[in-house]
Structures are given as structure tokens and as C-alpha cells.
Design a protein around this nucleic acid. Structure first.
Ligand code: MN
Ligand code: MN
Ligand code: MN
Ligand code: MN
Lengths: 136, 136
DNA sequence: ACCAAAGTGTAGCTTGTGCTACAAATAGTG
DNA sequence: CACTATTTGTAGCACAAGCTACACTTTGGT
């Protein structure tokens, strides 16, 4: 049963997934918070992720450099078009994975916990398989 | 459809999963390489993960501090009892996730790529659900 | 035994993400 | 308006994991 793919390719893929993880989770959270309460502050994200406001602030600076987010000092955060697009994609994938786990028989609480990590490692092919499973 | 669990708890769990990821992947790789060729060198791990030998060296030093691995300068790596136990657990979980994805209809190549990341985010409950799915 | 090649170690750099402590700005309350 | 509480920013720390460059050890071939 030798691997069809070299192990190194899988580990490289995983490292790449992790490199985009923060961006995906942040734009998704920002978009959700914007929908829920009209504006998104550093402090909202601090609570959402259970990290210090400093961590939030520095990640937002990076996302701004990458053109996903707009942010002026002491002002709320907003998403660029690119950021909104990534948020929508991320949310959709998140939902599919979550729904999949629940349909599979995992409890809602545990499904929510697991989905938050799993989502970043699901390829298009696997996502499609999950989509079909969900509608079956 | 409000979350049953706070989003922050999921993100904390994901961060914890990532904190143990390198240890799990390394002891598993070491154990596999030991089985395959009798000894495991820094260079074997370098190839396995597609990183520099420096990265391998520093991660091994940490795993040694954590009591998972034995290593003397210029000598091959070996696993402690604790390391071997973690390797066995990690391999078993890896196999279950991989088998699950393939049974689900994902191609072998993609299943191998995705499993390498997903495995670290699968809770005991989800793993059990996958086990049952695999034998169905 | 020697020399070259391969493998390993170490110094030192980078980036990302976590933190506390302190300073500044904004918001809320009397 | 003034004062306080909350929010946000910044300095500076830690740690993990990536890298290159260079030094040292080990291995293998002549
Ligand atoms: Mn996530
Ligand atoms: Mn998410
Ligand atoms: Mn992950
Ligand atoms: Mn892995």
C-alpha cells in the first residue's frame, strides 16, 4: 500500500493551508459581525477569537497589506471586494463541512469544533463529495 | 441557526491542535522510516517533509525536550516509549481519516493530501463516526 | 591513509502569532 | 463640559517553524 503521492507533497499542501487560515477565518468573522451588528471593531474580533486585541490588530495590519481589509486607526474594520469574496467562499466551505459532519452523525457541538480546523484542509474534490453527501 | 458552542472555543481548539501537529507528524514519520530502513536520520526527515535539515534539527531538539525522541549529535533518531505511543496513535488516526475519505469517494491522491491536514482536527467523537463508516 | 562528498550542527535572519504593559484616543455619564 | 471607562495603538517580549551560509563530522572511494 505505498502512497500514490509523495508524503512531502501532502505536508507542503498542509503548510500552505495554514498560511491562509488566519485570513480566511478573519474575513469570515468580520463579514459575520458586520451582518450581525453593522460594524466590526477590533474588540469584536478579540472576543470572537479569544485572543488579545494586540494579536487582532497585527493580523488586521497584515490583511490590509494583502488587500483584504480596510482599517484606519480607532475606526471599525471593513472588507474590500477581494476580502468579501474570500469571506463568502470561506463561509460556504465552512457551512458545507459543518453540515457534512452533522449529517454524518457527529453532534452539533463537536461538529462545530472540528469544522473550524478541518475546513482549511478540504480540497475542491473533497468539498464536492461532501456537497453531494449533504444533499443525499 | 445560532452556534451551540461559542466560536471562540472552536478557534482555541484549532490552535491547540496546531500546537501538537508537528510532534504527531514527526513521530509518525520517524516510526515509519525506522520500520522501512532500520534507522532514521535527519536527512530522511528532511526529504520526508521537504524542509531544510535545519528545520528538522530544531524540531527534533524540541521533541527531545518533550521526551518523545532520543537524539545524539551525528547519530540516528529513535523514539522513546512515549514517542512510540504517540506515533501509533497518530498513525491509527491518520489511517482512519485516509480510509474514510477514500470510502467517501475521494480519489486516493487527493485523500492523501487532505488527510495530512484534517487528521489533526478530528475529535474522538468524529473519529469514532469515521470508524463506523469505514466498516459499513 | 587521504580526499571528497554527504550529512549534521550552529549562527543568525525572517515571518506569523501569541502575550503584557503602557500610552493615546474615543465613548459614555454625570 | 469634565471625568471615567472602554477601546485601540505601540513597544517589546516569547516561541514555532521556515530559510541560507558556514563549520564540522562522518562516510566512502582511490
Ligand atoms: Mn477555521
Ligand atoms: Mn471558519
Ligand atoms: Mn490545520
Ligand atoms: Mn499531518
Amino acid at each position: 500500500m505505498k502512497p500514490t503521492t509523495s508524503s512531502s507533497a501532502s505536508h507542503q499542501r498542509t503548510r500552505k493551508d495554514h498560511a491562509t487560515e488566519a485570513a480566511e477565518d478573519y474575513v469570515e468573522a468580520i463579514d459575520d459581525i458586520l451582518s450581525a451588528k453593522g460594524e466590526c471593531r477590533v474588540d469584536d474580533l478579540r472576543k470572537h477569537f479569544s485572543v488579545s486585541h494586540v494579536t487582532v490588530s497585527r493580523i488586521l495590519a497584515r490583511l490590509q497589506r494583502e488587500g483584504l481589509v480596510r482599517k484606519e486607526a480607532y475606526r471599525p474594520v471593513s472588507l474590500t471586494k477581494k476580502g468579501k469574496r474570500l469571506a463568502d467562499q470561506s463561509r460556504e466551505r465552512h457551512q458545507i463541512v459543518l453540515e457534512f459532519l452533522k449529517k454524518l452523525g457527529v453532534s452539533a457541538e463537536v461538529a462545530e469544533m472540528d469544522a473550524e480546523g478541518i475546513e482549511h484542509h478540504v480540497s475542491e474534490e473533497t468539498l464536492e463529495v461532501m456537497r453531494r453527501f449533504n444533499t443525499k
